[in-house]
Amino acid sequence: MRQPGTVVPRRLVRLAPWDMAAFALGLFLVIAAVMRPAHTLVAEALGAGTGAGDLLQLAGVATVLANATNNLPTYLALEPFAAEPARAAALLVAVNVGPVVLIWGSLANLLWRDRCRVRGLEVSSRRFALEGLLVMPTAVAAGVLAVALAVAAR
């Protein structure tokens, strides 16, 4: 007889969200394939500076891409364009706070919705998007402006 709290590897394997892992892997592959030919276009869209406007531009593009695809592959695709610490911080704000409009924008969103469904709570993608649109612009802008203020204060 097993002790309470004993870890059973087969049970852990069954509990893993394999469908979401496959989805995320597919997104990484798509982003990698798209980024190669679009490198110059992406660089122009992201800008290059560290002023407040430049950081907001970077965050805006990253937020849109994270919502359209997913935050993890978006971060990896855009990280080379955010070499300076301020740009990296703005990118992190965008890909972590921004993807709250489309349910697939973040694996956390997908896991959250899955757990809600398991417990009998259905949240529509439309409602999720509408409520996300209410908070996302202010949250991303506030985070990025905090980064810009920290840079200006140095």
Rank of each mutant, 00 (worst) to 15 (best):
126 R>Y: 06
73 P>K: 09
16 A>S: 11
117 R>L: 09
59 A>S: 09
3 Q>S: 15
105 G>A: 03
123 V>L: 14
89 A>Q: 06
142 A>N: 00
28 F>M: 06
8 V>K: 06
96 N>A: 00
51 G>S: 05
43 A>D: 05
6 T>I: 07
81 F>E: 10
37 P>N: 09
16 A>M: 14
3 Q>P: 07
8 V>H: 11
56 L>Y: 13
55 L>D: 04
117 R>I: 06
65 L>T: 04
63 T>I: 07
145 L>P: 00
32 A>T: 08
87 R>Y: 00
132 G>D: 04
140 V>I: 03
21 A>S: 10
94 A>C: 05
106 S>M: 05
9 P>G: 00
131 E>S: 06
48 A>I: 05
5 G>E: 10
77 A>I: 10
53 G>H: 06
118 V>E: 12
81 F>H: 13
63 T>C: 02
90 A>F: 01
122 E>K: 13
109 N>D: 00
68 A>Q: 10
66 A>H: 01
41 L>C: 05
14 R>V: 03
62 A>Q: 00
31 I>L: 10
62 A>V: 04
153 A>R: 08
77 A>R: 01
152 A>G: 02
21 A>Q: 05
67 N>R: 03
53 G>S: 10
121 L>S: 08
24 A>F: 10
58 L>R: 07
120 G>Y: 01
149 L>A: 14
16 A>T: 15
11 R>S: 14
114 D>I: 09
73 P>C: 13
41 L>Y: 14
48 A>F: 11
132 G>E: 03
122 E>L: 12
115 R>H: 13
4 P>A: 08
132 G>P: 00
19 D>Y: 05
134 L>H: 05
